[in-house]
Design a protein around this nucleic acid. Structure first.
Lengths: 213, 213
DNA sequence: TTCTCGATGTAGGCATTGACTACATTGGAT
DNA sequence: ATCCAATGTAGTCAATGCCTACATCGAGAA
């Protein structure tokens, strides 16, 4: 046994993510973490000021991972702004399913309440990117009747709400066995509604699709 | 001072709701509650088996209150199924804003994970009612292209997501000062989209302007 | 090479909290 | 009037977060 662990900070983050994925944020204990990693109960304090500091770090990692998801989605999606927006929504829900620890930590009220500048900035960047994608979709005919803000919040709410439902035991048990992917597809189609867009764009009068900035 | 409190159970629930509204569920402590009410630290255990039991009771109260909100909304809404569905969504978001303690407790993972039969049943009833309202809206032309389940989840996700956003400090601080009511209206209009429904119901044939209600 | 010092980990302690047990008080039913 | 179930009290314990003082390590300075 070595006196020093080697990379305790990383190990703490990984183990914490595993515990949160299994038992939720409530089930996380710094002392338990230290014991599982074979270090003393005070060792974690060398790397994280307090429990929220660890959670905040995890949440920031989660933002970065989510960033990679949305980046990949942007690249894989075609040039159609509607498809792009749908891909962003898909990426978020998939992220929430594949990284439950990041997802739960990011939504934890303590973390949001004690967010540092890095976390706020990461969140802000994602919101701005979403707003741009929303704007592009509107220029392509999506929800032109609404303000950009309302349209963005609509899409964001639907996506975040869907993720919340898929993580809600009450919802899951009431719905019974379903294919999450099919549900995500179905809901995203209702959010984007390309049929309606096509109908509106090819509408009686064609002053609607003037797309310039 | 009397040896017995009088109605400690009720007092505990009320005080707990106040604390949760101020500091969130994380800020709630049974001993603190007891101290504020002037009873011994073990007194709460006479009324609630443990902390989750108290939270679960609060969540059940919340379901009842939400039930009253939706009942009132149903009554005040006109006969139009679309208007009815929008009113249900509105009622949920309004409930979440006016009763933050109920809202937060109901969404707390511990509560959902340890829900008892009463809570599951209350949740199930609301889901069934929402499914019926969704079905009626579809019969009136709303989102007929989607399955009833997908349409319901779409609406539910948008509404729950909007409530989540309005309670999210990160979202609120990024958005800046806004009028929540205007945002709720705007988003609900995008969920229901009566214009699109009217367009779809009055078919491709162009008697578009002759039709009025 | 040896020394020093900052980084990292340890040991102990304290306050808070949830939960358990044994005991006390009350008021209503008999 | 008596009994007893409901309600409240006091004490205890383990778990936890956080604090302080001390120990160990290893890399760079001397």
């Amino acid at each position: 046994m070595t006196y020093h662990h080697g990379n305790l900070r990383k190990a703490l983050l990984e183990r914490a993510a595993a515990v949160i994925a299994e038992q939720g944020v409530e089930g996380l204990s710094l002392r338990g973490l230290a014991q599982e990693l074979g270090v003393s109960h005070a060792a974690p304090s060398r790397h994280f000021r307090d429990k929220v500091d660890l959670l905040r770090t995890l949440a920031t990692e989660g933002h970065e991972t989510l960033g990679r998801y949305t980046f990949a989605a942007s690249n894989q999606a075609g040039p159609d702004p509607l498809e792009h927006l749908a891909a962003l929504g898909h990426a978020y829900v998939r992220f929430s399913m594949e990284h439950p620890a990041y997802y739960r930590t990011g939504r934890h009220p303590e973390v949001a309440a004690q967010a540092d500048e890095a976390l706020k900035a990461a969140n802000g960047r994602r919101m701005e990117a979403l707003l741009r994608a929303t704007h592009a979709a509107q220029e392509a005919g999506w929800r032109q009747d609404a303000s950009a803000l309302h349209a963005m919040v609509f899409g964001l709410a639907a996506v975040r709400g869907l993720a919340a439902l898929l993580h809600d035991p009450l919802f899951r048990s009431h719905i019974g066995d379903i294919d999450p992917d099919a549900l995500i597809d179905g809901v995203m189609r209702l959010v984007i509604d390309p049929e309606a867009v096509r109908a509106a764009t090819h509408a009686p009068e064609d002053d609607a699709d003037a797309a310039d900035a």
